[in-house]
Design a protein around this nucleic acid. Structure first.
Lengths: 244, 244
DNA sequence: GTGCAGAAATTGGTTGGACCATTGGACCAC
DNA sequence: GTGGTCCAATGGTCCAACCAATTTCTGCAC
């Protein structure tokens, strides 16, 4: 007997019902990310529930990053929603030291390599053109400012994740990216951080354009290796300066 | 001019403040997962905020799986909490179940291989002995029941993640694992699911014991490949049966 | 004393109404 | 145009009450 086939019944699930209704609404109105959805008061009235219940439901969506609420302005859709969404909330116990940063890089190394390989396998001509565009923008920003630009660099990588066809890559790496940057603001250490990684962006692209998964994988590994080296150099410098 | 140096200020963040206070409380009381935390009413009174605000905060935590609320009983801690937590809500939208499962496997393939390699690099003699113990238990369970045992199998893998020295592996893969099992309850399809993966557990262990990172990586990839094959077979079977 | 049914207290879930803080547009003086 | 001021809309917070599920207590039968 499989007791899992008898899920507990839900006598009250008002807020879940609200979210289901909201999904239907978004579908019916074909709302795109960025667009505003109805007022809390209107939703409460239309759905015949209290505004508080509507708020609890929206709070859940906000926590999942599906929606953004701006006081005085409204509630805005942040991502596509559907009935068969699977939520997999993952909370990581962060850390702000050198070890934690290295750990995020270990994860990123594994995922970045796989994403690059999958991307090389699955990229269409249009995809390749899009990645090339992002690469050009990044390289130009690098030349004009003579240094890595976090923004354009990140755009380039995101394009690769997207083409990999698996949204999880972008989501997980984005979290690692954020964790990494959260302790990065202060200029602790190496001035030309990321400089060494620059050439590998193009080599990765070349492999993708040539539909060479293994090549892309190896170039991605090299790129992450340069970042790890930078981090180690920064840590060594920091230790040195704190000793004196 | 770097506009990133002017982040938007945050004037009101009541519920965030509530959660911060709650983290401190859990730390101070050394609450373990499973224990009950104070009533909503008590929290509201102590923190000098409305019960509504407390509820919004708890709703957030509930959505992240940090807490479980039982009407009439209380609110219970479900996981460890800390100040520097990073929330990573992963949402797998769109596609059917098969697609989603394959996507989780792509992530797991990348991480599993890296974890196995790192494990082979860093394992101490005691670590290797511990993994061997888990392997024995698993193999025995396999023989007595003539089939893969999810529980013991998972224990074995977790031991590897732990020895890798990076807790992120276990956390992320655990999320994938849970999602995978959520759709697995009903016996839809292949009866000897996971059977093919059995021998690779020992080959992975052998590589780890021999301190052979690249070997461990390749054996781990082979293991995931068998799971992917099983999944594809199951999907094909399902499609076939739904056609008739 | 033991066991059990029913009452009572506890606790999360919901409601409705009120007010505050922020936003964004309309309007106006300069 | 620019810069203010006002105002309506909207999310954020609060309060007080009641509902629904659960737990605990009480008292009676045995």
């Amino acid at each position: 007997m499989d007791q899992n086939s008898l899920p507990p019944i839900q006598t009250t699930a008002r807020d879940d019902a609200v979210l289901k209704a909201l999904v239907s609404f978004v579908r019916a109105e074909a709302l795109q990310p960025g667009e505003r959805l109805p007022t809390e008061r209107i939703l409460a009235e239309r759905l015949k529930v209290s505004r508080n219940t509507v708020r609890e439901a929206l709070t859940r969506w906000e926590g999942l990053g599906l929606v953004e609420r701006r006081q005085g302005s409204g509630t805005y859709l942040k991502a596509a929603v559907s009935h068969d969404m699977l939520h997999m909330p993952l909370t990581l116990a962060g850390g702000n030291d050198f070890t934690s940063l290295m750990q995020t890089l270990e994860i990123r190394r594994a995922l970045e390599a796989e994403a690059a390989a999958l991307c090389a396998e699955r990229a269409s001509q249009a995809d390749i053109a899009e990645i090339a565009r992002k690469l050009d923008i990044m390289e130009q920003a690098f030349r004009t400012r003579d240094g890595m630009s976090s923004e354009e660099d990140w755009e380039f990588h995101q394009a690769i994740y997207r083409v990999s066809g698996n949204p999880l890559f972008e989501q997980i790496i984005a979290a690692m990216h954020e964790l990494f940057h959260r302790f990065w603001e202060h200029p602790l250490g190496v001035r030309d951080f990321g400089h060494a990684s620059f050439p590998y962006h193009r080599t990765i692209y070349d492999c993708i354009a040539a539909r060479d998964p293994e090549g892309a994988r190896h170039e991605a590994l090299k790129l992450i290796a340069t970042v790890e080296d930078d981090l180690k150099r920064g840590a060594a410098k920091l230790k040195l300066s704190s000793q004196k």
